[in-house]
Amino acid sequence: MHVHPYERMWIRLSAVLLVVFGIAIAVSSLALGVTIPGATPRSVATGLPADATPSQGWVRELGPGRYEVNLVARMWGFEPNVIRVPKGSTVTFYVHSQDVLHGFKIKDTTVSMMAIPGQVGRASYTFEEPGEYLYVCHEYCGLGHHVMSGKVIVE
C-alpha cells in the first residue's frame, strides 16, 4: 500500500506521541504516585488556614483589601452563597466538596476549578470592578445542578 511520505511522517509522529503519553502515565502513576481522586482525602495542601475545613463555610477579613473564603460545595448549593467585599479586594477561595464532584467558576474572572471530595482547591482573585459576580457549579452533579450558584458582591 502506498503511503505518502508526509502522511507516513505524521503517522510516525503520532505513534511517538502515543508512546510518550503512555510513558508519562506509567511514570506518573508508578514512580510519582499520582492517582485519580478517591473518597479518601489524598492531599491537603500545607499552609491552609486552620479553619479551612469542609465542615463550615465562612468569609473573613485578613486585613484591608484582603479576604479569605472557605467555600463548601454540596448538593446543591454553596456555603456561603453571598460574599460581600469592597472594590479592589483580593479574595482567596478555599474550595471543598462535601459529597460529589462539583465545580466552582466565577463568571468574568479567571477563577475556575473543580471541587473534589477530600481535597482543597485554592484560587485568588482581585475584584477591581464593582458589581455582582455570579459563581456556579460547572461540573454536572445531579438533579439540582442548575440551581447551584452564589454571588460575590463587590461594593
Binding site: P49, A50, D51, L62, G63
Partner: peptide
C-alpha cells in the same frame, strides 16, 4: 494589620475580651 493580614495573609482577630489574646492562625 497591613503587614500580617493584608501582606502575609495570616488571619488574626482581637478577642472580644481584652484580657484574652487575639485568635490567629499559627
Amino acid at each position: 494589620r497591613m503587614v500580617v493580614g493584608t501582606g502575609f495573609g495570616v488571619y488574626f482577630q482581637p478577642s472580644a475580651d481584652p484580657e484574652l489574646p487575639p485568635a490567629y492562625d499559627p
